[in-house]
Design a protein around this nucleic acid. Structure first.
Lengths: 343, 343
DNA sequence: AACAATGATGGTTGCGCTACCATGGTCGGG
DNA sequence: CCCGACCATGGTAGCGCAACCATCATTGTT
């Protein structure tokens, strides 16, 4: 701090600006601006002249200045609770595909499943005058919600279906959990447990548990609290949990894991330990990661259209920015049960 | 375009600015600026007054304006060739951990292994007046290199060790490939093949192949061109490739896969198809993803410190921004052979 | 032929903030 | 008790660009 170094200088030496290009091309700065932003509004001959000057000088437009002048940026922050979880990566990929095609930039925020961190991020990122904002989840701190509500920009809440601040793209995790619960019951399993990690933070996993619980209740079967572990989900943890749960509750004949990372780990661990799946215990996951289809036995899971969520969210956001119809405020992308060998 | 909608208005209605806070607090705007950016330079009483005004008005500083005024932003673009590959995700995570702790924001760029796309991205992202820039790889288009060289900001090239534009954090993929090659030879394998995807694009994988090739040459063993496939790497592709390669070249007794995604897929496929690993064919990977330790047999691989690469890169970049010593321009983080059951 | 409609170009202004310099007040040493 | 050092605060200017409106040339219309 305080220390005056080269990067904090007011004027970056040698910076080429619009003005320089304009002088070189013999036109007014505004014309250069137009040649860059709305080429169709400049005559072909001038445009060629300007493009030449741009190339010669190596001009790179200062987006920051443009943004300040127009109060409109091509930045879209995406706020997710975690990057370790591949689900969010795929959503981000979907968003990015759409954004980059339209010349927008993705600004990444990671809350680590902390609602206060989320407030902080939203506040900071709104300072970038973003075109809109994409946030994972429908539950936020009060202040976060106030910020999002008052920011006067398109806001898309993704991952779960529900009542959004502005727009929403996701699926019902409750339904997904119930769907898996009914499948397991239909298959003849009667003592079904749920294994998840940090359920107080990952409330979408908790919703899946609730769905399972509801299915169990409907069928008049024994309901159990979920098995939790403190670490973030990974195959390693899944394997460890499988052993721990079977030791603790050997009567269980089916386990619904909160996600495929855990479930695949459990499957591999079972193979290694000689635990017969699904004979001794059935194993199910959630997500539909490709690897689940390759294990032996292959994993029964619920496939969610993760990439689609990102793409749809980005498209709705951009539609609103452009003022074109964005379609319904709420999109339920649904999910699909993939029955394989592990149940 | 052309269409005038709410988001393109010059003045965003109801936007609270520094000035409003200053009026409310009864001080000059510059004092509010200082209270926010360098709180220690404002007396405690004024600071409290200002903080109150900020809270009352719900003021969110406009970073864009600040950036323009100071020609210095807290943005760091990270340009990677792919998000599908978990390696880059972990590097990004490492970068983000460090950046967020210092109040910096990560701007994500994805080249899809396309050098022209990279040039475009670098050009665009430099328009954000970033504090510095992190790019995967040492090979760039000429214009990209010119831009990076001339941008007068810290540039960190990550993933591979070599001669950087500015700074470099990575490892030698050639050495890594040779390390695995020597391991396989030492284990008694004599007919060793390499399986990768899109090697013309993923030249780091190609380097690993070259390392293997060198080890084979040193040992006087038969060298073969790599087996390639056109899709991006995934476990599914790895399984398919295992079968295809064994059909095409049944004499092979060991396969070095370009990465763990492929190798794990091959391992799972082998288990399913009853191909004995390592008896019929040994399988090795590269990366050291956790799941490789869980398969049966467990995967022999080379563990690269991916997260460290991101963290070190971000720290070096921030050190340079702050003007403090950033350490050596080149950091070779090395890698480690993890010998497990699959070889 | 006169005029409106359209399109291309330029001048001026200000986005919100911070660098820079100036000012005035407080304090300790001589 | 005065002077210079130092700190807290304020005034001014300008970062680079695009919105807005004005101007001028061109075209089509009656």
């Amino acid at each position: 701090m305080g220390q005056q170094n080269a990067l904090h200088r007011r004027v970056r030496p040698g910076a080429v600006t619009l003005k320089h290009v304009a002088e070189r091309a013999g036109v007014a700065p505004i014309t250069v601006s137009r040649a860059i932003n709305t080429p169709s509004s400049v005559s072909a001959s001038l445009r060629a002249q300007i493009e030449e000057a741009v190339a010669e000088l190596g001009y790179v437009p200062n987006r920051v200045a443009g943004m300040l002048a127009s109060a409109h940026s091509r930045i879209v922050p995406v706020i997710v609770p975690s990057l370790s979880n591949a689900v969010f990566i795929e959503v981000i990929q979907g968003v990015q595909t759409v954004l980059e095609a339209e010349g927008y930039q993705l600004l990444l925020g990671n809350t680590q499943y902390d609602l206060d961190r989320e407030t902080e991020l939203v506040s900071t990122l709104l300072g970038w005058s973003p075109a809109g904002i994409i946030v994972a989840g429908l539950r936020h701190a009060e202040r976060t919600e106030a910020l999002l509500r008052g920011c006067n920009r398109p806001v898309v809440e993704v991952m779960e279906a529900g009542r959004p601040i502005d727009m929403n793209v996701g699926l019902s995790h409750l339904k997904a959990g119930a769907m898996m619960g009914r499948h397991l019951i239909e298959r003849g399993y009667r003592r079904i447990g749920f294994v998840g990690g940090r359920l107080e933070a990952d409330y979408r996993a908790m919703q899946r548990y609730r769905g399972l619980d509801r299915a169990l209740a409907e069928a008049g079967l024994a309901r159990r609290p979920p098995f939790e572990h403190p670490d973030s989900s990974s195959p390693e943890v899944g394997g460890r949990e499988l052993l721990a749960v079977l030791r603790q509750a050997p009567e269980l004949d089916a386990l619904f894991f909160a996600n495929d990372d855990l479930a695949v780990g459990a499957l591999l661990c079972a193979a290694r330990e000689g635990i017969a799946v699904p004979k001794r215990v059935a194993i199910a996951g959630f997500n539909g990661f490709g690897i689940g289809a390759l294990t032996s036995p292959a994993l029964t899971t619920i496939v969610s259209p993760r990439r689609d969520i990102g793409e749809i969210a980005a498209r709705k956001l951009l539609a609103r920015v452009a003022g074109s119809p964005a379609g319904p405020a709420r999109v339920d992308v649904g999910c699909r049960l993939a029955v394989r060998e592990s149940t």
